[in-house]
Design a protein around this nucleic acid. Structure first.
Lengths: 252, 252
DNA sequence: CGGTTCGTTGAAACCAATCAATCCTCGTGG
DNA sequence: CCACGAGGATTGATTGGTTTCAACGAACCG
């Protein structure tokens, strides 16, 4: 989440490329030497391509692997018996997917590609075994993979409890902007990979409310949105909007 | 979360008591032998008493230890710059506290005792070191401590997005009931340790709405509440109320 | 026995959900 | 290349649930 960006998205050779892609969230504080990185590298069997709209794993699937998103964009969802779905998160290049399964050894949610994507599976039991040899890996596994999710969810919870629709939207756009920036993309111009309905589900709002919210933010000259193209005009203004809503650090 | 209850709340001797208390959420699937339990036991330095209203740790505090609630009741909160607080969870006897700090090495929230309580600190770095020797401990550390939180938060999120006030309240009472039952207490008669305002904060509602919601549930003959005394009259009815709200497994 | 904190209840305002109509965009096929 | 269709997005009008403001009652404590 810090200087990891440096070795972020360099185009790379075939195999050892994974050491840079999948480990994006692990590499930074590892202090691994080359041999160790190599061993980590060996865990990644091969990349897997997922077509837009296809499912990487489903609720209830046994845990085979964690996934590092090498390229693309995913949503995670919960499906209720009656078939309705709730979006629980969006994952972009360089983020991890699948930790929801560690607790029960089967996935707690579905992961669906919102555009053509590519992931690097990391066999979990092998990762655990390896981390026994590499204490710093173990520590980072604990730190980065899991607890971070907890903190993230907590701020989301906080948001759901305290923010009105416009504030949630502002926080949503800022969060996307921030994560894109961290990965070397423009924080000011980007494309939404999801529909209004999915944003709404994620934020606990209806799609119409998302539409109206965008309209209001536009009227405040905070951003421009044409269909799925977003242009952030006034990040400071957006931050001001959500300030004092009980949110800390990173909005999400 | 399963048969762990068996060795739940036996009154115990002085030191090795901890093996039963703190490990409540770890013990079950460990497959540890006595020697190993002993080693785990040694991690617990000593119990700490926390008076009602006092703080176990604060947002920003460096991570020293995880805490097993030996006795009592806690809330975890996030405090915003302007001083308002958001309740993110309630922890009762036999539950873990402090995992929020693993990601950043400092606590992401405050933990406040809602009644006179007692916790067993578990030194985290020692726990990590020990888990290197005991693979099954490591696996359970990963599984139970962390990922479970994620699942829990996800259902909470889902709740916040999809349920109305009465459904949230019903889910809240059912969840308390369930957890108490698991710990050997009556699932039908219990005392609320928190104020209406704290319930509201947790559920993303105002305290007045909590009041009115309780009144409505009472009129449906689902439960009785006098001040902080709760009597669940119709758990089936409560479940029915929240059915089809997109919730799965355990309500929370 | 006052004072304070907590809980309940009422009335009005407000915000998001809902229902519904229309528009836009993009991909497909004629 | 254009027409068409379908899904997605916008906008309007209305409804309903929750918040807000406010007053009051109950419990607790010094």
């Amino acid at each position: 989440m810090n200087d990891c960006d440096t070795l972020k998205l360099k185009p790379l050779g075939l195999k050892s490329a994974c050491a840079n892609c999948s480990v994006l969230e692990l590499c930074l504080p590892l202090g691994l030497n080359d041999t160790e990185v190599k061993r980590l590298d060996d865990l990644i069997v091969q990349r897997v391509k997922i077509k837009k709209g296809n499912t990487l794993y489903r609720q209830g699937d046994p845990l085979h692997a964690l996934y590092a998103v090498r390229l693309g964009f995913f949503k995670t969802t919960l499906t209720s018996e009656d078939g309705r779905e709730q979006v629980t998160g969006f994952q972009m290049t360089g983020e991890m997917l699948g930790m929801d399964a560690i607790s029960e050894d089967r996935h707690a949610c579905n992961a669906v590609a919102l555009e053509d994507s590519e992931v690097c599976p990391i066999h979990f039991s092998q990762l655990e075994r390896l981390s026994r040899d590499l204490p710093s890996l173990q520590h980072n596994l604990n730190k980065l993979l899991m607890s971070r999710e907890i903190v993230r969810d907590h701020s989301l919870l906080l948001m759901m409890g305290n923010m009105n629709s416009d504030e949630r939207l502002a926080a949503f756009f800022l969060n996307l902007s921030q994560r894109l920036s961290l990965r070397g993309y423009s924080p000011f111009n980007f494309i939404l990979r999801m529909r209004r309905e999915e944003i709404g589900s994620y934020l606990g709002l209806r799609l119409e409310t998302i539409s109206r919210g965008i309209a209001r933010l536009r009227e405040l000259n905070l951003l421009e949105v044409h269909a799925r193209e977003v242009k952030i005009l006034d990040p400071i203004g957006l931050k001001a909007l959500i300030a004092g809503c009980g949110q800390h650090g990173n909005p999400l």
